[in-house]
Design a protein around this nucleic acid. Sequence first.
DNA 1: CGCGACGTTGATTTGCCTCAACGATTGTGG
DNA 2: CCACAATCGTTGAGGCAAATCAACGTCGCG
Lengths: 194, 194
Amino acid sequence: MDDFSNFKKNIARFVTLTPVEEEYLISKVKVTHIRRRQFIVQPEFVCKYKSYIVTGCFRAYLVDSAGHEHTITLSVEDWWISDFNSYFLQEPSELFVEALEDSVLIQMDHVVEDDLLAKIPKLEIYFKVLAMRALAFLQKRILANLSKSAEERYHFFAKKYPHLLQRVPQHMIASYLGMTTQFLSKIRNQPSKT
Amino acid sequence: MDDFSNFKKNIARFVTLTPVEEEYLISKVKVTHIRRRQFIVQPEFVCKYKSYIVTGCFRAYLVDSAGHEHTITLSVEDWWISDFNSYFLQEPSELFVEALEDSVLIQMDHVVEDDLLAKIPKLEIYFKVLAMRALAFLQKRILANLSKSAEERYHFFAKKYPHLLQRVPQHMIASYLGMTTQFLSKIRNQPSKT
DNA sequence: CGCGACGTTGATTTGCCTCAACGATTGTGG
DNA sequence: CCACAATCGTTGAGGCAAATCAACGTCGCG
């Protein structure tokens, strides 16, 4: 089971490529190994790639003027990561995207992407589906932040992503959920109802 | 200046259609007039259309189990509105989308959209650009909610969308910004800096 | 071994909410 | 066309959820 196995499967969930197309795709993308604590995106720099996570774990976060970190994204295997804003518009990023574990990525840049979309138009559909899902996801997250208490948000998260609780340090989860480490700790260690 | 003038201009910002394509597009979409306080999306129902606002103003909101409204979207002329989640997946919506003024929409349903995308592939690009912009926008909003105080969020909003302050009732803006009407009122009437 | 990253716990503070009452404006039916 | 209701914004008192500040224990790693 090589690096591309799950990548192909993931695409096959939404569009069906011919063997020739698949081969062409694989020939164009680039496999990159990233060490823990390494950054693949940094503020001031333009985000060059969109990256599919083969193995590993990443988070994207912003550091505000008070020096507080705010986590936008926690991603594991079979997700795409990037600063889509910076990648799409080719503007300097404001975010850090950091590997939380040693990771393997499949990457493409704009040149490769445009070529692939031209040669394999079905990929437009694949990326469209991903974009729509991302939109739905972000909308739900905004709603959750507006309408739920810190405790509700945590329990919802814990139920939905139990594996992340084990892989990701708690202060990052806290910052993802919009609360302090201390408060999250208190939630976890209180009697509580489910 | 007919209903389609700005619609065409908006598309032309991102892709260039031939006169024939433009005509075909116009022949397929549907112009709808909506009265103030009318709903174009309601919970339990599948969202049938994506709609371009020719004139008017809409908001999308969710009512939580405690009966509180949470505004996801405030939209005016030249924006697309829909419950994209419900429209894209053809699942029942959870949202209300309500006209805040008498409005005129240009609408397309899935059948029309698929046909248009097949006949005018350039529209894929148009919608892709819109989707990416929406993604960037939602991401910024999540960051603002995570990192800014209610007062900062309000002043930021007021500076960025001064026209909305006049068109939209304040309790809706408050719910969009994630605070109560009363608190927003207090922010507005305090000395404050900036 | 010693330092830094991580989590926990308690005391205190505060940003924002809830509840409540009250003008002003809009709009609507008799 | 007026009266009354509904909608909208304002203001104040009191309360709570979550932040801040601070101190401490543990673990992993260089």
